[in-house]
Design a protein around this nucleic acid. Structure first.
Lengths: 189, 189
DNA sequence: CTATTACAGTTGCTTTTTAAAACCATACGG
DNA sequence: CCGTATGGTTTTAAAAAGCAACTGTAATAG
């Protein structure tokens, strides 16, 4: 529904957010991940208005993230399920959940843990890894234009990014904060 | 700004989305990651209305995700930078970008690649890994109540999830779609 | 087979958020 | 001083979200 400006809509993040960039879409997908299938259950769990829920579910089905399948074998009633495309959002989802656990909760208030089914062990934090499987920090990351960087919809943005990159070697952080260790459990605020 | 319902606001995903669940927050963070620092540059790159931009930046600073620091060493003018908390969003951000590349672009239209600074090699897809570093599929995941699951704000939701878990062994997918191989490059739609 | 309730949405209307565009304020640069 | 770049506010309009009541099928009970 939301329409973004031309100069952003070619970016993958922007496109993803055209589908998911509202208050409810991610929460709906969270619900599906946690096993919610029925209209009234979404409504009850989230407190979302029913008309908004209907519109949102339709949009997600339309986008190919959800699909309706029978609730049980040979039942006539349908429920909402993740498609393969929807499944693909799991890493982003878990990363967001873990970020929330880390920065918006204290260790005592974490409500849900994502665990391995086989062992029950909590999942390690989702990290950016290099090809050798080693964690990468923000400083070790960079970007490069992809095959579609020349598209008139995004070329100006890429040019702006190029220009920014040439500037400022990075201001000295006021306090030389520790490199964020993924496993560290510092209490944030 | 958006206020969520009581029964969701204790969940980490919900809390994260109270800060980030709108059309612009993620894009602003993307901009900061790509080096944008100045008010007018955000406005120009995204086409966001200036009042909305001002409100959003203030909210992100208030939340501790961004902070204002001098643009250069001993410059008087300030720019927006990621805090450590903001840095923590990188895995979620990259996961979202990669999802968009995979499902909302064709291989030819991918506009930006995230690479390792040292080698220039494109980052492998962000994945959910177990403790041994092996990729996990959706079926191998489960959840468990955390220390804060008893909080009255979330206990009913956790109870609902428990109940859902007991039902339905999982309906047979109409087409037995391939298990999503993280590296696969199937053309989606 | 009929009545009753559960379910999955619509419809019409109100309130809240977001957006657009014009307007202000401060800091330099000359 | 004057002009301009920067970083916002104010005002007003449009879009989205919320609410409550209503409708049409599906399962279910008798």
């Amino acid at each position: 529904m939301p329409r973004l400006k031309a100069n952003t809509s070619t970016c993958s993040v922007a496109r993803a957010l055209e589908l998911l960039g509202d208050r409810w879409s991610f929460l709906l997908i969270r619900e599906v991940i946690f096993g919610t299938r029925r209209f009234d259950d979404f409504a009850a769990h989230l407190g979302i208005a029913r008309n908004v829920l209907a519109a949102k579910l339709a949009a997600l089905v339309d986008a190919g993230i959800l699909e309706q399948r029978p609730l049980h074998q040979d039942a006539r009633r349908l429920g909402y399920h993740l498609t393969e495309m929807g499944d693909g959002l799991l890493p982003a989802m878990v990363a967001l959940l873990q970020w929330g656990d880390r920065w918006l909760q204290t260790p005592d208030t974490v409500p849900l843990r994502i665990v391995e089914r086989a062992t029950g062990a909590e999942l390690p934090p989702v990290q950016l890894l290099d090809h050798a499987g080693q964690p990468l920090t923000r400083r070790e990351l960079d970007w490069a234009p992809g095959p579609g960087a020349g598209d008139p919809g995004i070329a100006p943005l890429v040019a702006a990014y190029e220009k920014q990159r040439r500037v400022v070697p990075r201001p000295i952080p006021p306090a030389p904060t520790a490199i964020p260790r993924p496993n560290a459990k510092g209490k944030p605020r």
